[in-house]
Design a protein around this nucleic acid. Sequence first.
DNA 1: AGCTGGCACTCGGTGTTCCCGAGTGCCAGT
DNA 2: ACTGGCACTCGGGAACACCGAGTGCCAGCT
Lengths: 337, 337
Amino acid sequence: MVDDRKLAVLRAIVEDYVSTNEPVGSKALVERHNLGVSPATIRNDMAVLEEQGYIAQPHTSAGRVPTDKGYRLFVDRLSQVKPLSGAERRAIETFLAGAVDIDDVVTRTVRLLAQLTRQVAVVQYPSLTSSTVRHVELVPLSERRLMFVLITNTGRVEQRVVELPDVVDEGRVAHLRAVLNACLDGCGLTSVPDKVADLPERLPAEDRPLAATVLSVLLESLVERQEEKIVFAGAANLAGADFTVGLRDVLEALEEQVVLMRLLGETSDPSTLTVRIGSENPYTGLRGTSIVAAGYGSGDKQLARLGVLGPTRMDYPVTMGAVRAVARYVSQILAAS
Amino acid sequence: MVDDRKLAVLRAIVEDYVSTNEPVGSKALVERHNLGVSPATIRNDMAVLEEQGYIAQPHTSAGRVPTDKGYRLFVDRLSQVKPLSGAERRAIETFLAGAVDIDDVVTRTVRLLAQLTRQVAVVQYPSLTSSTVRHVELVPLSERRLMFVLITNTGRVEQRVVELPDVVDEGRVAHLRAVLNACLDGCGLTSVPDKVADLPERLPAEDRPLAATVLSVLLESLVERQEEKIVFAGAANLAGADFTVGLRDVLEALEEQVVLMRLLGETSDPSTLTVRIGSENPYTGLRGTSIVAAGYGSGDKQLARLGVLGPTRMDYPVTMGAVRAVARYVSQILAAS
DNA sequence: AGCTGGCACTCGGTGTTCCCGAGTGCCAGT
DNA sequence: ACTGGCACTCGGGAACACCGAGTGCCAGCT
């Protein structure tokens, strides 16, 4: 089978290029992998692969380098995700198990992933929209100020200071708190606006100004957090890999929440890995980089995404294995807490 | 006065080198600044300055470059902090005023500072230790789990999930909450351990296991957060400045909380600026970088520190001006909320 | 004394040239 | 369909020369 060998050649090229970071030539290829044919034959295959756009030469008479399309084929058909070693698994488990709150989980995860893959790790905070209200708390701070705290079932806490129009006594606050909790407990964040829409009407007239103020803050906090929070770690790993494209662009992208959001991509089935290679991703500053991402979430619910970002010439099987494993463990941790 | 001119020469060298990033020679010096003497004279001065260790030549017969000691003298005696323009002040003010909670304040501050100085900005979260308890909240999550929330007067919120030894009914929880709040309200975080030490003894026997569990979590959360949280932004600005020392080291340092802590240094009078130049700072990976830091805090209380990190050849007067201004504005915002 | 102009010297950086070798494409032969 | 042979290409490194900014020093001037 001719085609079979061409694929083998492509795989070999990707593997060699990833490990050596140098264009790979026909001779080196037959030496390192035992394809049972001569360099000349490989050259013919390579010519075809080049014509089809899977590989390219940086300049005439140099070795070949995989193109984005080549990596794509490699990822889709020529490689399989490499599972982590037992030691690595145990390390992950113990490291994540020590987390004390949701912040801590995210921070630990992102560092872990960066260290594991030796690349830049990106983790999105569990989304508010798919979680439910667990408790609403109103804490009087002074006569005319109170703190509003919203606690979700994912352990996330939103807080806002509310300036009140009038002096309000504790009894009223306690009452409103009770009403709010009765009304919202367990309800999904997306349905909160509906639930509270007619709430002021159901209260005695003298409570309405207070309720209106608090509710407006509540609603505001919901919309604002629609744009999720994202953290990254491992930027130092970028310095090692010499980037074709400006490292500056990459760092800039990392500090732009919006860009990161789009990079991680749409939520998909948690067990599925999303790979975006070079020019496939939506930000021009990131040609030359690839993203491997996965969803995570407690139980069946997909809460958010995490992933790593690195040069297109990364070790996809290993990276994918690490991302998948971490996503699973985090899901597990979240489900347990 | 001979000495006077030497200082002027040093100042000129620093200024020119900062703006051009090239070793500066005697001829260029007399052309750009009108010292009323000839290059030869300047050369003599430069020879002396070099002997005293304020400047150095990268290699024989090249221009001079300031040493760390030279920058130090410049900062201490030859420069004055450059105030921001009115437009910049207004921009800061409006940008910070939009902050909605403490997280937001910190995030906005760090970005603002990075953008303003075109360097890496570092901001420490307001310290827990110098703030006081405003409210303690216990939220039952299930029969055997509850969430513990600690709210401080600086608007910071600490949360922990507590696993209970036994099933506990709501009444007990409510009681404990009331007791805790009565006991701790307004008390400084550092004095919390003392305050609660004898608390279990003052409760009915059947409440003690619950109280003990909650208290242990409370105390734990206090110690753990002793090591403060620090964020940075503007790493992309590092890519522009070509670093003498490996950029990798710098990025690594930025991701190490502990190193950052030590860099920002001891708390000092808020209005004072701390400048650490090159080898003066405690981390070898950061030779070649300087830190300009200031304390900030609401009112008189010094809460935490913020600053920027950049190459030793930075524009100190401007950077110092920006850091000082931002520190003041943040203090103001915090005091108001 | 202190400053200046003149002068010989240094040496890093740049541009030029040359060469090598890895790698290619093509072709004729098995 | 594969292989060995061959001529060709071209990037990158080594050798080299040159230029010019910059220096140190010294003798002379004020």
